[in-house]
């Protein structure tokens, strides 16, 4: 009888936990869902063409995010140019070349550590280094490089993980027909790990788009009623890099500025910007999940 009781009690415990687990999962998602619905309810009426092609303004109903999304785009471009080559190269070096010595160990520990440094610290480092020491000012270049350093660990770690899944017999087969190390990497390692690396790149870019704190410290302005200089012009030399040193604003900063205002009309604008931001980051993250899934199916070792 008491054994039966015990069994029943234990079985009940299992059931309760199964239930609790499900509740917690559902709770987490309902928070995400509430956030999305609440934001849509407030901000959706503001989302129209004008919102995307207007500059910020002190009249909330006339204000838009033109300079903000152009700024975000420009900065993500600089970030990619910096972080992708550097991150992938570091990943390749650590997986394929690095010998087991103190210097490789130092680099590895350092990357783990970099990933754990709060983003705002990158921001104040960039304020002192890029803005004042290198005299780059409060420019798109500064912002892009700051975010580039910030997302570097993400790209390095995913590149390494992607390369690590490739079995060593692939490399041995390549060497055995006379390929050099770099040829092996160029024709085998990189193509096979492309999916994994892309996943990391997409996640890193989504992080860069949503990042706010370090850009506040390097001086992103909230009120920018003009666009950066166009990169292509009709007069010689046709291509201009002037935009790199122009002041800028980005979507998260614009949103932060609108949240900080007391008037509720501006909160509507903030919600509308939030919808744009949220959609972009969620789409990028879902894309990353799909890329990972497809490549996992494509290569089975």
């Amino acid at each position: 009888m008491s054994t039966n009781n015990l069994i029943q009690k234990i079985k009940l415990q299992d059931l309760i936990f199964r239930f609790a687990g499900l509740i917690v999962l559902i709770f987490s998602f309902s928070v995400l869902l509430t956030l999305i619905i609440d934001m849509f309810k407030t901000g959706y009426p503001r989302i129209n063409e004008m919102f995307f092609i207007s500059f910020p303004s002190r009249f909330p109903e006339k204000a838009g995010i033109l300079s903000a999304w152009v700024g975000s785009l420009a900065i993500v471009l600089v970030t990619s140019f910096m972080a992708i080559p550097l991150g992938v190269a570091t990943g390749i070096y650590l997986e394929e070349y690095a010998k087991k010595n103190w210097i490789s160990k130092l680099i590895e520990l350092n990357i783990l550590n970099l990933a754990g440094i709060p983003s705002i610290i990158y921001g104040i480092m960039a304020l002192s280094m890029f803005v004042y020491q290198f005299k780059m000012g409060q420019s798109i270049m500064t912002a892009g490089m700051t975010l580039g350093l910030l997302v570097l660990p993400i790209i390095i770690v995913t590149t390494r993980e992607a390369i690590r899944t490739i079995p060593s017999h692939i490399r041995e087969a390549s060497y055995s027909v006379g390929a050099t190390k770099w040829q092996t990497i160029q024709y085998h390692i990189l193509p096979y790990s492309f999916g994994g690396i892309m996943t990391g790149v997409v996640i890193a870019l989504s992080r860069a788009i949503g990042e706010t704190a370090p850009l506040i410290t390097v001086g992103a302005l909230a009120f920018i009623a003009f666009l950066p200089t166009a990169p292509i012009s009709t007069v010689a030399p046709y291509v201009s890099l002037q935009w790199l040193s122009d002041p800028y604003t980005v979507m998260p900063i614009q949103m932060f500025n609108w949240i900080s205002r007391p008037q509720e009309e501006f909160h509507v604008n903030a919600a509308a910007t939030g919808i744009v931001l949220l959609s972009m980051t969620l789409i990028l993250n879902i894309a990353a999940i799909l890329i990972r899934y497809r490549f996992r199916k494509k290569y089975r070792w």
Binding site: L32, L35, D38, M39, I203, S206, R207, I209, G210, E211, T212, A213, P252, M255, F256, I259, A270, A271, G274, L277, L278, T281, L282, N285
Partner: peptide
């Protein structure tokens, strides 16, 4: 993955 500024708004 949700931007932190969005969480702040929330």
């Amino acid at each position: 993955a949700v931007p932190t500024v969005v969480y702040g708004y929330f």
